[in-house]
Nucleic acid binder design. Structure first.
Lengths: 148, 148
DNA sequence: CCCTGTTGTAATTACCTTCATTACATCAAT
DNA sequence: ATTGATGTAATGAAGGTAATTACAACAGGG
């Protein structure tokens, strides 16, 4: 099972806002064109990013803007804004192990901590990367493009 | 989006096999009773664990057995046996970013490496834990049960 | 004040994955 | 041959993803 593409879409959206917000009005239609998914999907993602206070969206006139500096928006911030993980655990657990089996009645307690460790490790890695890193990679790539 | 419960089911199954294989015939019906999911689900998981050479399954007579020592079966081995992500990545990517947008035509290349780093970090953590660790936790818990 | 462009939001649809369930062929030992 | 188990296919329900249509709410310009 994979993590939904809405996460990478959100990163794409944030990168677009950072790059274009000074030059033009970054609307859901514009973002829809760059990401190439339906504008309603974009708008829902914008709502989630706004709820997490990562961006600001102008209601009537249109346009999205970063609400925090790029180096303070970590990939974990975006991940948590987008992924509505039930009970916050990455790993789903089978519901009703048999309490009359010594393994069945203990497996949940045993695995919970270890799987949480795995999840925390992953989230720490996500926290170590910021939108600024993405933007830095991007300018590097764009400069390479110019040379050719 | 969460990782399928088939992963924790597989760990439950392996723990049961390790605990019971010397005492009784560990059949899919028995495992189904301990895990509390349908026997066909168990059988399919057993097939995947067998394909990964983690267990052996007796065809006509029935019964599953560990094919490797518990301290050589890492949680990553189980994860890879169960989750059919072989060629795919943990993070799904939106398909067709607009190549005429400077962000759109570069976002994939930029994010790929960073998301792969995150995935590798998670997998390394999974590799550091083995079935023997789970069994050790289990015996500790069972001894505590006895005291009460 | 109304028109226009945009956001916020609901509803519908199609598709995919997970898991439960039924059914049955295959197999090994007695 | 009978028995008890595995291997495997097919179907259905439930839930999530994403596309799409539709429209109310809103802000600014003419």
């Amino acid at each position: 099972m994979q993590i939904s593409s809405r996460f990478t879409i959100a990163l794409h959206v944030l990168a677009c806002i950072a790059v274009f917000e000074k030059q033009l009005k970054v609307t859901s239609a514009f973002l829809s064109g760059s990401v190439n998914v339906n504008a309603v999907i974009i708008r829902n993602i914008l709502l989630q990013l706004k709820a997490a206070e990562l961006i600001r969206v102008e209601r009537g006139t249109g346009g999205a803007y970063l609400e925090q500096p790029a180096d303070e928006i970590s990939l974990l911030d975006v991940y948590k804004a987008i992924e509505p993980l039930e009970k916050e655990t990455l790993f789903r657990f089978h519901d009703n192990p048999n309490p009359r089996c010594p393994v069945g009645r203990n497996i949940h307690g045993i695995l919970d901590q270890r799987l949480l460790d795995v999840q925390n490790t992953m989230e720490n890695e996500l926290q170590s990367m910021t939108l600024a890193d993405i933007l830095s990679d991007l300018t590097t790539k764009l400069q390479k493009e110019k040379k050719e």
